[in-house]
């Protein structure tokens, strides 16, 4: 079973290497360049119509950095490093949405579904391999890019501070960096589980609809409209909005979680204790069953 899942996961990554490997790689390389430019003032374009400068650390900021306590500095750095990774996370997030919508639609479109179903792999195993990709594997694959980005940022900052008479190594290169990497991994896993119903809904649309994008959008829109007209509520819309957003900002969490911060493992345990999380897991189980059923009934359906 492990060998089968491994082969299936490798296949998924090979098929979607642009979304999961190349796109985050290029975004992180661009970000590395921008970060280095910010620290070393490599970019300063000023014309009549355009004004862009990366000469960011002026004298005022240098003095401010020297005046704050080391604990505050660490908090600033940790938050800064976390924010740095957002463009990569957004890139991979969009990649995952596109993957979820296309993964079952593509096999119908190129008719490779017939081949995949001629092999001794159950539909459930196939769907679970894709769930593993979304919830476990891709979040893990993002980490090297975030580490690269952080290391470039830290190195650039160290060189910058050293050349500006700020002794930074003591508080800049603390052990929190490594523990924060683990926190980010667990936080991403939690996010993937939190958003799993959305990914699975897109997969279901790809499994059943002749036009997957319309199949993904039209039914929820109809539900939202009907709910608003009949019950005067907007639970479906709130559910979707909640699942698109960060799990730590859902209504189930205390207000202090609204701040941008590196989450602790205990925060994730708090997520597991919420009713909203388990409602999402239940919806995911139902959607997995639906995908398995529809895929097992698909033989050679046309798709646009």
């Amino acid at each position: 079973m492990i060998q089968v899942l491994k082969a299936m996961i490798v296949r998924e990554i090979q098929e979607h290497k642009v979304a999961f490997v190349y796109a985050p790689f290029f975004v992180s390389i661009i970000l590395c360049f921008v970060i280095a430019s910010v620290y070393f003032g490599g970019t300063n374009i000023q014309t009549d119509q355009f004004n862009f400068s990366t000469e960011y650390y002026d004298e005022e900021i240098r003095q401010a950095m020297q005046s704050v306590s080391s604990v505050s500095r660490i908090d600033i750095v940790r938050t800064g490093l976390l924010v740095l990774g957002f463009p990569i996370l957004l890139t991979v997030g969009f990649g995952l949405l596109a993957y979820s919508l296309s993964t079952f639609a593509d096999e119908r479109k190129d008719r490779s579904l017939i081949f995949w179903r001629s092999l001794p792999v159950s539909d459930l195993t196939t769907v679970l391999s894709k769930v593993f990709i979304v919830t476990l594997i891709v979040p893990l694959m993002v980490i090297p890019y975030i580490i690269l980005l952080q290391l470039v940022a830290m190195t650039s900052a160290s060189i910058f501070f050293a050349t500006n008479d700020i002794v930074s190594f003591g508080w800049l290169w603390g052990s929190y960096i490594i523990t924060d990497w683990f926190r980010i991994i667990f936080s991403l896993w939690a996010q993937a589980l939190w958003s799993l119903p959305l990914f699975l809904w897109l997969m279901l649309a790809g499994t059943y609809a002749a036009r997957p994008i319309a199949g993904a959008i039209v039914p929820p829109v109809i539900l939202i409209v009907l709910e608003g007209v009949i019950f005067k509520t907007n639970l479906v819309l709130e559910f979707i909005e909640n699942r698109i957003g960060f799990w730590s900002r859902s209504d189930s969490f205390p207000k202090e979680y609204q701040e941008i911060r590196v989450v602790d493992i205990s925060d994730i345990l708090l997520l597991f204790s919420t009713q909203a999380f388990w409602i999402g897991i239940l919806a995911s189980v139902i959607l997995v069953a639906g995908i398995v059923y529809v895929r097992s009934s698909n033989s050679d359906h046309a798709i646009d």
């Binding site: 098929e15 096999e107 490779s112 001629s118 001794p120 050679d300």
Partner: peptide, 15 residues
């Protein structure tokens, strides 16, 4: 399908 294999259509291998 561990014991039965098939070619049920041509050109259905993933391109």
């Amino acid at each position: 399908l561990k014991e039965v294999c098939s070619i049920t259509d041509v050109a259905v291998l993933p391109k």
